[in-house]
Computed example of a mutant assay.
Amino acid sequence: MHLPVMPPVSPMLAKPVGRIPPGACYEPKWDGFRSVVFRDGNEVELGSRNERPLTRYFPELVEGARSELPVRCVVDGEIVVAVGGALDFDALQQRIHPAASRVEMLSERTPAAFIAFDLLALGDYDLTALPFRRRRALLVDVLAGAGWSFHVTPATTDIDTAQRWFGEFEGAGLDGLIAKPPNLTYQPDKRVMFKVKHTRTADCVVAGYRPHKSGDDAVGSLLLGLYTDDGALAFIGVIGAFPMATRRALFSELQPLVTTFDRHPWNWAEPATDRTPRHAAGSRWSAGKDLSFVPLRPERVVEVRYDHMAGGRFRHTAQFGRWRPDRDPRSCTFGQLETPPAYRLGDIVPGLDYGM
């Protein structure tokens, strides 16, 4: 492979802001795996945000790149999977599997698509020093009618349209907006774009904690739950961004609530459900990370901030808001969560609703 921009490349990043900034080019924020695609003839490589190749996991995108992309190019974008007409991040995660036979099977059962939003190189030309508005125009031109696998993200310079997208597109699994200054050059690994995400709150039950990696008497993260309609406590995510002094204080405060698993709603003697964290087991998504935790009696309630739900869990780590000693844990149910109205992926990007 010999391109004017060679792998690996760390993608350009976005910094969070509280409102949509004026005077920018606005795009939907896709919920998938960030990837930079390199094509030089038949050679194709799918890079990732951490610069590790994703190529072997998405053979359908490798074939799609060979038939739909320019012969020599470098394209920045997002790998996504659609199921039932909406983005499905859980299905996307399952695509990262060590067995080649399963990779091949999933490439047919839950095929991925690539949402392109920047063009870093074309032919012999490095485009990273060009302003974004020119790179965007070239991207639209070279991917016009690309095919089934590769799509160009919608974009607008109208802030009212961007505000409407922000409200509507969440119903298809997207999670906000990206704003790019029109004269922005491509700057790998720099937070020079802007992202606007939804912010909501929920009152959750604290049902366990993971010890801090330092090995000290400190809390690493708190495990959160909500009650279902049938009275079961479902795991929905964690919070963990605490100062070290707070982590140590929490460790002391929570010791009176420590219990055993046979007295806990997440009883590991029973078969695990898809809403229950795995006890003392590794995860292929976390490269052997220990997912065990210390069970607590579910008696404390915390208000957290989150952006959106995916598969019955917080899509990203929630943020601590405040303790709610006034709240009955049993009143913390899924009913308090806001559910955005459904929206068709095919109305955002034509041809992307193949999962319907």
Rank of each mutant, 00 (worst) to 15 (best):
E104A: 15
W30Y: 14
A99C: 06
T156A: 02
L54Y: 13
L222W: 00
P340T: 13
G84W: 08
P22N: 14
K15R: 14
G288W: 02
S214R: 14
S214L: 15
L54E: 02
L177K: 01
P188S: 04
A14E: 06
F334N: 08
D175P: 07
F320N: 01
R102H: 10
D158P: 00
A179Q: 01
S292R: 00
D328E: 15
A113F: 08
D229F: 05
D203I: 03
D31I: 09
G176A: 10
F117Y: 15
H279G: 03
W268Y: 06
W165K: 00
A269Q: 14
G23Q: 13
L174K: 07
E63Q: 13
E45V: 15
A172S: 04
G167V: 06
G311Y: 02
I178Q: 01
S48W: 08
Q255K: 04
T55D: 08
L139N: 05
P8F: 06
P340G: 13
E108V: 12
P271A: 07
S286E: 07
A155V: 02
R248K: 15
V62D: 01
P341C: 14
T110G: 07
E60C: 08
L177A: 03
F169D: 01
A280D: 01
T161S: 05
S292W: 00
S67T: 15
W285S: 11
T259R: 02
E170L: 12
C332R: 09
A155S: 14
Y186D: 01
F320V: 01
D88G: 12
P28R: 14
P59F: 11
L46G: 09
I79F: 04
P111F: 11
V36N: 12
H2D: 15
V302L: 06
R135W: 06
D217A: 10
G176V: 05
L130N: 00
E68P: 04
P329Y: 13
R109P: 05
L226C: 06
V37K: 10
R95A: 12
I236Q: 09
R39C: 12
D189P: 05
P28S: 11
D175G: 14
D175Q: 14
R135G: 03
F235I: 01
